[in-house]
Design a protein around this nucleic acid. Structure first.
Length: 226
DNA sequence: AAGTCACGCAACCGCATGAGG
DNA sequence: ACCTCATGCGGTTGCGTGACT
């Protein structure tokens, strides 16, 4: 097998062509998603593995949903962003058919200004540039805000989703009743130990805040039901 | 009609992480 | 325990296009 010299074999950049899409689709159909490094060798595509992966995830995979974000999806994005910060892949995981890139773009172009500036989306580019110079609250993940002067994610969550809080809010465990959140939480999403335990079984749920890192799901349940 | 601006989106880049040797 | 490689993630860039002057 002859390798092209890196200088002469310049990888393609820019927008994907229909032919490139077809080659990538065919590759995935045969080999399945993954082994992105091999795509260029197998198909002749002059694209990096990263680029192929991104194209597949954001555009070509069969379950991808194109088109406008619905108001329901929008609401979900806002609420999840409030909880999770810029963890786009987690947020995308709750919106079937939407990619993290799409949600990130939608947030940055549409929702961020709406959330920061109320409903006034007529913001000039200069204004945005100015904003970009200073750290935005919305760009910070909840855990980074913790202990600072910024919003308190625990209390925010508490206020928003816990009309009937569990017995010990200050003790880091709390209950929510919002049925939406039956679908929103699971253990694996929060494997960094900051958000973790949840009772996904019914209309009510139990969540754990990061100051309780050693608690297992079982411990949290015992705590909640004791 | 032509030039400029503003915006949205696709794609790229750098870093982090995890698996396997 | 360390190294390498593949993959994933979030931030950023740049292009295409429609709106505006």
């Amino acid at each position: 097998m002859e390798k092209s010299h890196p200088c002469t074999r310049r990888s393609n950049r820019g927008a994907w062509t229909a032919l490139e899409d077809k080659l990538l689709r065919d590759y995935v159909k045969t080999h399945g998603p993954g082994k992105w490094r091999n795509v260029s060798q197998e198909t002749g595509l002059e694209r990096s593995g990263k680029s192929c992966r991104l194209r597949w995830l954001n555009y070509l995979r069969p379950d991808i949903k194109r088109g406008n974000i619905s108001p329901e999806e929008e609401d979900l994005i806002i609420r999840l962003h409030k909880l999770l910060g810029n963890r786009w892949s987690l947020i995308a995981g709750r919106l079937p058919g939407r990619s993290d890139n799409e949600i990130k773009n939608y947030w940055n172009t549409t929702l961020a200004k709406r959330v920061v500036h109320g409903q006034n989306s007529n913001q000039s580019k200069d204004d945005r540039k100015e904003k970009e110079k200073e750290p935005s609250n919305m760009d910070e993940a909840p855990m980074e805000m913790k202990g600072s002067e910024g919003p308190d994610p625990v209390n925010d969550f508490k206020e928003d989703y816990s009309p009937n809080p569990a017995m010990d809010f200050s003790g880091k465990l709390f209950q929510y009743n919002d049925t939406d959140y039956d679908q929103l939480w699971n253990f694996s999403d929060f494997d960094d130990g900051r958000w973790g335990c949840g009772n996904m079984g019914g209309a009510n749920g139990l969540c754990q805040w990061s100051d309780f890192p050693s608690a297992s799901a079982e411990e949290a349940e015992i705590f909640f039901h004791s």
